[in-house]
């Protein structure tokens, strides 16, 4: 209806988003990443055969935001749920959407073994260095010195160890077929992030094994920053601990 009133449509909401209003805070990157995933699913024409496994955390409502068949897993268990789906229906596309508390803390066993089995699923991993939903507690990815509600004096090695690098860790496993770490702080790196997400889904379509895209993301609310400050903080601090780049890529023949 709107189309008729305008001369040219240059952008619209991707079909794979339901149109339900996001529950995310201003400046949070979840919304951007949701959109990128939906655009990729539309472009690949796989909406009718894609199953989504949402996590526990801020993105728990992801199953409502995507216009796809979907469920919510228990905290950290999304890779196991996705494994069950994929083994039951191997010709469907199955992806999990998980935060850092979900994937890198309570769900380490499930993600490590899904990757190690070369489970032919895709994981979108949102790393914002904090537990968002529960109000800003320390995550396994919280940076050293970073203040959170459970590290009020800043994270220390002595008390909490080092921030865990999941992409590096999972890239040591032979079942991993494609792993890349990206961010969405600028239009330019958002385009790169979309390319990575598309490649991850293509990896699954080709049946090459486990694929994951880690997206460094902001949490302005729990970081206590404006969205612009948060993006800057991410670029200046998180990328040092979590370098961007491709960690595994078996899509280029030979494997």
């Amino acid at each position: 209806m709107v189309d008729k009133a305008v001369d040219k449509v240059i952008a619209r909401m991707p079909k794979s988003l339901s149109g339900k209003e996001f529950t995310y805070c201003p400046g949070c990157h979840h919304g951007i990443v949701h959109r990128l995933i939906a655009e990729v699913i539309d472009e690949l024409g796989i909406a009718g055969k894609t199953l989504l496994v949402a996590p526990v955390g801020c993105s728990v409502f992801a199953y409502e935001f995507f216009d796809l068949d979907g469920t919510v897993a228990a905290h950290g268990r999304a890779p196991a749920v996705a494994t069950g789906m994929k083994r039951a229906l191997p010709d469907r596309i199955v992806f999990t959407y998980q935060g850092d508390g979900d994937l890198a803390s309570i769900g380490t066993a499930e993600i490590v073994h899904a990757a190690n089995r070369g489970e032919n699923i895709t994981t979108i991993f949102i790393n914002n260095a904090v537990y968002g939903m529960t109000g800003g507690q320390m995550a396994p990815t919280t940076l050293l010195g970073q203040k959170t509600t459970t590290t009020p004096y800043g994270r220390t090695v002595k008390a909490n160890g080092y921030p865990i690098r999941m992409s590096e860790m999972l890239s040591t496993l032979e079942g991993s077929a494609y792993i890349e770490r990206v961010m969405v702080t600028t239009p330019q790196n958002t385009i790169k992030a979309k390319r990575a997400i598309k490649k991850a889904f293509e990896t699954q379509i080709k049946g090459l094994g486990f694929s994951m895209v880690e997206v460094l993301s902001t949490c302005p609310t729990n970081w206590g920053m404006t969205p612009i400050e948060a993006s800057k903080w991410l670029e200046e601090n998180m990328t040092k601990q979590f370098p961007l780049g491709v960690y595994v890529d078996k899509t280029k023949g030979g494997n």
Binding site: L51, V53, T71, A73, A74, R77, A80, V81, A82, T83, G84, M85, K86, R87, A88, L89, A109, E110, V112, H113
Partner: peptide, 24 residues
Amino acid sequence: GTFLQAESEVATVNMMYGASCTGR
């Protein structure tokens, strides 16, 4: 059929969750 040895009983029951979601 499909047999899968899971990494734990925690993973087992969640794999069942996923498989059951598909109706099988």
